[in-house]
Design a protein around this nucleic acid. Structure first.
Lengths: 228, 228
DNA sequence: GTCTAATTTGACCATTCGGTCAAAGTGAGG
DNA sequence: CCTCACTTTGACCGAATGGTCAAATTAGAC
């Protein structure tokens, strides 16, 4: 019933300041038990939420997957929503990273392909996070609508300018930069979000190696300027 | 709370033999009331299920959206699952159509672009269906796993042969045909499934026209054979 | 070992959920 | 206008769900 999922593969290993949801005195250092249990809960929540979404997941499912009793789970997070939003926040912290790293001063095609590569690696290494995000978007992004129209939009617009600069300098063939970004998101995240379908079509052979090769040629052919 | 959704835009206008879920005597023709209410329920179910998935949706939500009482809803479909599977079945009937229509005897690039075009049109005209499908896949495709590894896989393999033939004849540049199909799915469905995100980045301007232009150039550049 | 704060649990609660049922209402053909 | 099959509804049920709480247990500092 549950997808096999090597655990511990979790974004943001959490060496960070105490979170606000901390139940007790706030800002006291976490005990080892707290660390272990919070991590277990977040990982379990990621498993469940990424499959069933916020509404479709239950505390019992999550508690079960985390190996804790339901009241004990609620000792660490004050509600189902709190687990969900903690996961979303942690995800958003790193979600934009790969795009941010695209360097206006680097070699254009190399930079774009580097982005594609990082994004596909995220689909491979953090598929649950990708599916959690997909689920949130499918539901209309109620928890992150602001983030999308603020931070995300700004970042994309910024990078679109860079892409247009590269285009103007003749370094890449003419393209619509926004839709270029969408196509990178779509194709890379597809291998995480639609993993079941990809594997059903391909048989269970790991798709990521071939996917990377395919995406590499795709973007090279599309982006290499005509006169070269 | 609910995405605006011009209604009546529903796959398969249902001029078909009576379904098995029909509550009563079976195979008697549907009354007008039955037609209206069944259609209303399926449309409402599509609204709700495509957002929240099977587990995340409730009969009350659906009944509400359909303008019926819950017991009345259950007079037309015997369970929540019955509504969901009816929707999925209706979807699968047409889901493979656009790919099936890709003609081995047509002009290769024109045929592939035609497929892209039809698929993008489906994202535009039937976004709820696309999201329903996405939701089902995200949850691990429990209801359609067989369909994926049988019908879908067979169709894709078949078309992969066609693509390889075209490649061998020098009509299109060399590519991995399976991943080509994946990339078409990914990019076209993205505009339905991630609509909220696309619009957040783009502002509310309709994205489909530019998307089609972008995809057209993308696939042309990728597929046009080098020596032409 | 003792004491205290941190942790865990079983019992419980109100609400929601999927679904049933008998009774009441309604429409269309005669 | 009557009839009868079709349609609709309010009341209800048992199970699941999110969450609480007081009591029991345990970990670790001294």
């Amino acid at each position: 019933m549950q997808l096999p999922q090597k655990d511990a593969n979790t974004l943001g290993s959490d060496h960070r300041r105490p979170k606000i949801e901390q139940v007790h005195t706030m800002s006291k250092p976490e005990t080892r038990i707290q660390q272990r249990n919070r991590a277990a809960i977040l990982s379990a929540g990621l498993d469940i939420f990424s499959q069933f979404g916020l509404r479709g997941s239950t505390l019992d499912q999550i508690a079960d997957a985390a190996g804790l009793s339901k009241p004990n789970l609620l000792y660490y997070f004050k509600s189902k929503d709190a687990i969900y939003t903690a996961l979303l926040e942690r995800l958003l912290e790193t979600w934009l990273d790969p795009l941010q790293k695209m360097d206006a001063n680097g070699d254009p095609i190399k930079e774009i392909l580097g982005y594609v590569h990082r994004k596909l690696a995220m689909s491979k290494d953090y598929p649950r996070e990708s599916r959690l995000f997909a689920n949130e978007i499918l539901q209309g992004a109620p928890h992150i609508a602001d983030h999308l129209s603020q931070d995300l939009r700004q970042l994309v617009d910024e990078k679109a300018v860079v892409l247009k600069t590269w285009e103007a300098a003749g370094k890449i063939a003419p393209i619509d930069p926004h839709h270029l970004v969408f196509s990178i998101w779509a194709m890379t995240q597809h291998y995480a979000d639609f993993d079941v379908q990809v594997r059903a079509v391909l048989g269970d052979k790991d798709p990521f190696e071939d996917a990377m090769a395919y995406l590499d040629t795709l973007f090279r052919r599309m982006l290499t300027p005509p006169n070269s």
